[in-house]
Design a protein around this nucleic acid. Structure first.
Length: 389
DNA sequence: GATTCCCGCCACAAG
DNA sequence: CTTGTGGCGGGAATC
């Protein structure tokens, strides 16, 4: 047995596997950072997946919740249009009205109801042709055909769940809600015999996903009930902290949140790893490399951009302040790189008001970026890592 | 042991 | 049929 095997390396070589680097929240942050830029109007799922270095499946996850909050809108197969953060207020308003209209939410407790029957998703796919009035009665799914249970898929969609979750916050006067409270309300009721073979536990997983994405947008924040008790979420919404003049938010956390990248993570996913199955090394490896580069590339760009924006615009309160980084107590310090909430609201301003944004600069950067990336890809394609030809 | 939640199989819908 | 979407839950990482 000349197999030196692994003695017991807890965290020796390669930084083992880290769940945090693969979280939906982080992915969402990167997604936002990548597309929240001027000029972005259409987003392709494939492109997103490649740029972010993740599987398609994950893109669907964040895109669905993002759409539920009005940041994105599905345009067509594989295509989403970027609405931006400016779309949030509108979506929120509609969500709230909708919630008040149909079902009378009760404050979290004493809610005998529980399950929310269903609510039409007012998908105003076109702000132009006004819907005028939906003569349709509040019930009956006027689906083209084959409706029946077919729609029951949508019933359990992540998107709908997200909307209901948000509605819960918008309507409840309690600003702290824990996931299992939410689960109790949104999914079948709690105790009580009745039907609904809902494994509360099973469904709650979706809520975790949603909560992570939402908090990466700073729409909500994770805290605890009273003093260090069970975890719960607080709604931040738009308030956050409009222009609190957070002077110098150190622009030094360069090296943090690298997403997929890390081949270690990708190859030996988790710790499962098949013993070198004769399975040929998927050609994905190459793609992985590229992704890695993209990552660095992206980071670099972001940094630069951040500095840029920072110096050029001093976020001077707009419609509703950006959900500034509520946390960031004392970043910098050790390389603890913990806080990963997006705080790249740099380009946020430009999205809101095209009046301000520095078109020329952004454009220049974008162009530069694109060019460099192309070059990089090309090189990487032949010879990974620095070492052209 | 309990909580958080990533991964990706595979059903179903759309081309 | 192929391709795009995304439920769903096993089970590993974290707490």
């Amino acid at each position: 047995m000349s197999s030196m095997s692994a003695f017991r390396e807890p965290e020796a070589r390669h930084h083992a596997y880290s769940r945090k680097q693969k979280s939906l929240g982080l992915l969402c942050s990167n997604f936002l950072t990548l597309y929240n830029r001027d000029g972005v109007e259409s987003i392709g799922l494939d492109d997103a997946a490649n740029r972010l270095g993740v599987e398609r499946r994950r893109i669907y996850d964040i895109v669905n919740v993002l759409e539920s909050v009005g940041v994105l809108a599905r345009k067509a197969k594989n295509r989403y249009s970027w609405k931006g953060f400016g779309g949030i207020p509108q979506a929120l308003k509609e969500l709230k009205e909708e919630a008040l209209r149909e079902n009378l939410f009760n404050t979290f407790d004493a809610c005998n109801y529980g399950k929310i029957s269903d609510d039409e998703d007012e998908k105003s796919l076109d702000p132009n042709t006004v819907n005028g009035d939906d003569k349709s009665s509040p019930n009956s799914v006027l689906k083209p055909s084959t409706s029946s249970k077919a729609d029951n898929r949508r019933e359990k969609s992540l998107g709908l769940l997200t909307q209901n979750f948000v509605k819960l916050f918008l309507c409840s006067n309690a600003d702290l809600i824990s996931l299992d409270e939410a689960a109790r309300i949104l999914l079948g009721d709690a105790q009580n015999s009745s039907q609904m073979r809902n494994n509360s536990a099973a469904k709650v997983r979706r809520l975790y996903d949603i909560a992570n994405v939402l908090s990466s947008m700073n729409l909500i924040e994770k805290t605890h009930h009273s003093e260090s008790r069970k975890p719960a979420f607080r709604w931040l919404g738009m308030k956050g902290k409009p222009e609190n003049g957070f002077t110098n938010l150190d622009l030094k956390d360069t090296r943090k949140r690298v997403f997929g990248a890390d081949i270690t993570n990708t190859n030996l996913k988790r710790t499962k790893m098949v013993h070198l199955k004769d399975e040929k090394l998927n050609q994905n490896t190459k793609a992985q490399m590229q992704n890695q580069m993209d990552q660095e590339d992206l980071n670099k760009h972001i940094d630069r951009n951040q500095a840029e924006q920072q110096s050029k615009q001093s976020s001077k309160g707009f419609v509703f302040g950006p959900f500034s980084p509520v946390g960031i107590p004392k970043v910098s310090d050790s390389d603890k790189n913990s806080s990963n909430r997006v705080q790249d609201w740099e380009s946020l301003a430009s999205t809101y008001r095209p009046q301000y944004h520095n078109q020329a600069l952004s454009d220049l950067f974008a162009h530069y970026m694109e060019a460099w990336k192309s070059w990089y890809i090309e090189v990487a394609g032949k010879k990974p890592i620095q070492q052209l030809s």
